[in-house]
Design a protein around this nucleic acid. Structure first.
Lengths: 352, 352
DNA sequence: GCAAAAATGATATACGTCTATCAAAAATGA
DNA sequence: TCATTTTTGATAGACGTATATCATTTTTGC
């Protein structure tokens, strides 16, 4: 009942262990005929390499790095926290993860940080990226060194990374649009949108998806041009206050960050407020959802993304195919399907 | 830079490897003083057992079983498919999973199937359970044999399992209620509900959650008593047709299965149809969502659940603490945030 | 048919842990 | 103090793979 080893395969194929090994790890200098025999034995015996033994043998350790924007953004704090958490649970598999903070949303800073990675001995890196051709050269160098590179949350130039781990932001915008449309119950209305900056690709994409759904499926709803906020909570608060004074505003949608400002403005308001949709579940958006100050949060499940990043990077480093993984999809939260507070989780963890 | 081994720990603690081993694997017959010294060395060196080496050494294999209701139910077909898929990707870690079909929703059948497990040599079992005290005895026997037991999708008696992997069905019903409420845009309405049977705990819970939210937050909406369908598509089709002839029906909500019937009835209808919410994303509900025959699907992400089952069972078997895992939460699907079709995925997999 | 090149076989060591055995040392009790 | 028990040390084999070396056999080209 025990699974076959490479020695079994060699015996079945009628070759020596050394030759079987040459085939399995394609070291070359093997006759086609032998390759075929070994391959056949592998399938007929159902041989699968024992990763535990393999890793043990080569003393493999996985050194991972995460390049995350610096700053006090609640969302990226959450990301950082999840990385540390995941890393702690991966030590027994010889996986180490280091978070490297980079200047936020600056091509040059990111470029430098990527170049700096060349000096370090990482096996895999996950990068919160930007769409800039300037990144292609340093990334190409990195990959030439054999480092696995994936884009995280925000994609890198397509050719410069092996995978992208993040949601489809057009779909996220469409989802928000659908929900805003539904919430009008067939009636007309007027939606004010907010964005950090349209240079941020994710903001532009969300907005495009949002507009698309509303114009196609809910033409009786007017979408106003976005107010630019630089993701600054103060700007958002002031602008929201202003918007709330206007008549006939039936919904608000912020594609970007800075939601604490938007929420603060809503908290002050009285009477019936517009239907409110924001992105990313963090402490204040969760609280606002519970307090009925906003209606919907579209979240990208950073915890799932980080888990996925670990898995994908390991698979890339081992050059094996990916295990089955649930799809990344924009998640809709209302006050009724919120996951337990992660802070609560941490306290539980400390108890035990 | 290489991580410390148990020999390093022994040296640092000033004891032999054998003693360090006795402490680590608490084999007893060690002086308190030595235990303390080893513990100290472990923390100061940051020693972590190398699981790869450990598993290799003890030749550990994980034999898992999944007890799943027999039948052609689309949802459980999906579950079965995910199990096979996950199992295929776990062979390299010496994990095997066997799906055992049991009589659907019958306490006696399940009881017998659990007893039958005693004859087999499984390390862990995931069971789509029922709330019945009759299951407690056979489960206790199983656990006494050292088998890890978890409830899957539908819980077992609390004391009889180590964990439950599934969503909170009250939350799922609340979520559905919230969405139906929102979709009325402040107007009144009348909702027809459908259920398989209120003996099924999950159906009853969903309905309760649904009612709770609507009565609390949307009192202008009337919730009609559920039509019982036995999860039979034909019954559902006939009943839906009947309901659609009635005036003023603004929404439909089915907490159970048999949605193909409901969808067939909707496909026939003309003019404006009620807002429709169903559970579980399967081929026909996905198609109906795309074809705008229904509006919302609440899904429990069986793929995530299966992955989780594998992880939790392995952790239980190894008696180690659980790695970080994203929460299980009822997922809301609209036509804009659907994951790629799993059939498409399979075809892709065949290509490569 | 011969030299050179390519392919194969045989074998040894290492990875870190588990498990077991046996002998030696230390602690305990009377 | 001596016998008994408890604790410790030393060590060896196994798990399955990776990697390397060196000798031997087979194939290739001319």
């Amino acid at each position: 009942m025990t699974s076959p080893t490479l020695s079994d395969v060699a015996r079945a194929a009628g070759v020596s262990y050394a030759t079987a090994d040459r085939v399995i790890n394609n070291r070359g200098n093997v006759a086609e005929k032998s390759i075929a025999k070994v391959r056949e034995a592998v399938t007929s015996l159902g041989y699968v390499r024992n990763v535990a033994a393999a890793n043990l043998s080569r003393g493999r350790i996985y050194r991972l790095a995460f390049l995350i924007p610096r700053g006090s953004n609640a969302f990226f704090n959450r990301i950082r926290q999840h990385i540390d958490h995941a890393a702690a649970h991966h030590v027994s598999e010889r996986v180490t993860a280091e978070v490297i903070e980079v200047a936020a949303f600056a091509v040059e800073g990111l470029q430098d940080s990527i170049s700096a990675l060349l000096e370090r001995d990482f096996d895999g890196v996950a990068i919160v990226g930007l769409q800039s051709a300037a990144l292609e050269a340093p990334l190409a160098e990195l990959r030439a060194k054999g480092v696995a590179v994936v884009g995280l949350v925000s994609d890198l130039p397509r050719a410069a990374r092996a995978a992208y781990i993040g949601i489809d932001n057009i779909a996220a915008g469409r989802t928000a649009g659908r929900m805003v449309g539904l919430a009008h119950g067939g009636q007309g209305g007027k939606v004010q949108t907010f964005a950090g900056s349209l240079d941020a690709r994710d903001h532009a994409e969300r907005l495009a998806g949002f507009r698309e759904v509303l114009s196609t499926d809910f033409p009786q709803i007017t979408v106003l041009d976005p107010i630019m906020t630089k993701d600054d909570a103060q700007v958002l608060q002031a602008q929201t206050q202003e918007v709330l004074t206007q008549q006939g505003m039936t919904a608000l949608y912020n594609v970007g960050a800075g939601n604490s400002g938007l929420i603060a403005a809503l908290r002050g308001g009285q009477g019936k407020r517009p239907f409110c949709v924001v992105h990313e579940l963090v402490a204040h958006s969760r609280q606002a959802l519970m307090a009925r100050q906003i209606d919907l949060v579209i979240d990208q499940r950073p915890d799932v993304e980080i888990n996925r990043a670990f898995t994908v990077l390991r698979a890339l480093i081992d050059a094996k195919d990916l295990p089955p993984m649930p799809e990344l999809v924009p998640t809709i939260y209302v006050r009724d399907n919120l996951p337990a507070d992660s802070l609560t989780d941490q306290m539980k963890a400390q108890d035990s």
